[in-house]
Write a protein that binds this DNA or RNA. Sequence first.
DNA 1: CGTTGCGATACCCGAGCGGTATCGTTCCGC
DNA 2: GCGGAACGATACCGCTCGGGTATCGCAACG
Lengths: 301, 301
Amino acid sequence: MKFGPIEFRHLRYFTAVVESKSFRAAAQRLHVSQPPLTRQVQQLEELLGVSLLERQPRGVELTAAGAVFYEEARNLLALAEQAIDRTQMAAQGQLGRLDIGVFGSAVFDAIPRVIQAFRLAYPKVDIVLHNLDRAGQIRALRERRLTVGFNRFFVEEVGLLWDVVLHEQLNVAVHEAHPFAKREQLNFDDLADQPLIVYPRTSRPSFIDQVLSMFHSRHLTPQIVQEVDDVVTAIALVSSGFGLTLASDSALTLRLPGVVYVPLEATEAQIDLCMIRRADDESALLRAFIDVVHAVLPPRG
Amino acid sequence: MKFGPIEFRHLRYFTAVVESKSFRAAAQRLHVSQPPLTRQVQQLEELLGVSLLERQPRGVELTAAGAVFYEEARNLLALAEQAIDRTQMAAQGQLGRLDIGVFGSAVFDAIPRVIQAFRLAYPKVDIVLHNLDRAGQIRALRERRLTVGFNRFFVEEVGLLWDVVLHEQLNVAVHEAHPFAKREQLNFDDLADQPLIVYPRTSRPSFIDQVLSMFHSRHLTPQIVQEVDDVVTAIALVSSGFGLTLASDSALTLRLPGVVYVPLEATEAQIDLCMIRRADDESALLRAFIDVVHAVLPPRG
DNA sequence: CGTTGCGATACCCGAGCGGTATCGTTCCGC
DNA sequence: GCGGAACGATACCGCTCGGGTATCGCAACG
């Protein structure tokens, strides 16, 4: 006489009986015989302490409470189906939340392209962008607040993996009044005695360090006239005739009045865009995102 | 190796494991041993075709899909609780919908008082009022579109029950300029040769039929100057000096300019308010409503 | 007034749930 | 570095309980 808690079986049986208005018909629909159905519904009524059906010779009729419970049961069964669907979607990486760390000039071109493509392929995934420098990204990754990070020049970090996802050329941003503005291409020697604006210094090694090493390998010493925090400020200074600066291809979408971009000689004048992630993150969502990144960004930049 | 469909047991076990971050601790919480827990969670994962937990030496960790399913499971369990609550409330008449048929002057006083009291006692019951004459109420009751109806003078109807819930006195509505307006009380003899406005004729026998029978039993013949559809119109005509009319106590709240109500002699000058319902309706909701009606309306009107 | 179709009941069988005992692994302290 | 402790997984068993067949009691219908 003692029953356990309510189970989905009770709901399935009860709703079938209600919809068939008959135990026998419902039994047929459920591919069971009639007596178990009777028993389960009786149990359900006893568990609830409520009479749900009025048994009549011509079939069954819902009581007022039965009508309420029927609606609830239908709802629960539908939600259970949804729960399964959603879970399976999540397992395939089609549902969930992706926290992406971004920084620097890549946010102007490469990142938006990746995100747009990913949104299209996985519309039910929430994407949250976090503006973090490299150190911040690494910390956030370790603390699981981030799924992936995009940055330049990752050093090896235990527990983290990084891939180069894009090679970009360097460009020189000059004011249109500057003689370089007419040139098809420039090289490092051209820049040696030019007033250079450099960025950013937030976490070493950084963009600027790689640029400086390119000068050093050519035994050149650039004339640094100003240090700034970010690309936008640097280009703004170029726009106002302060000097020259270097920018990756991604920054080319950043158009300010009077600023002209001239490609730098190709040899070694490359800057990488890297993606960093946890080594132990084997989620389908991250896998799917990585695939999109490689599909969107040119296999060889 | 073949499992049936998902049951609430799977959800209860899984959520317990997640919340305890441990199979053993969850087993203790659930008052079962650890192996069945392991098995049920394994079954759940197989049923979903999804890995929900990462078993680690220090306990268990949710996968991304597991986190999604956990939220869904919590939600389902909470909704199941609510479903039980709501069903039990419905069984006690505390939840549901009450369709009430109303007609005539009772809507001005008695009905609003009843409904206000019922709303207070059973706030989660939806009350829907339907303006239907007696024939319409009887049809709607038979077709289950109505739970109760209020009207005057019910004849016996098979399958329906009626109770007198209120006795009201009759009053004469006269214009203040009329000599009767000064009287403390009136009787039928006074009215015999007065211009009388009568209402309504919608479904016989009706209010007017009872009034007329009161005249006849006294061998009097009233002077009917106008027939109208409803009380409000009748009183409006009184207000414009058209004649006199009779109105129950409920209509006294209906105050129009120049209209004065004078009580009619008490003997036999009573009018009933009746409540009609299905004989086979044993719902707790109806029972509760009837109780409220008898509590609100004076046991002897 | 028998027939028919309904849900309820009685009884049986076996799947499956929960129990105990134990294993394999990892992490910890000595 | 090694034994012990703690974790989840596995093996196996007993018994509950869900589902089966057969049948009952009852009301409606021709």
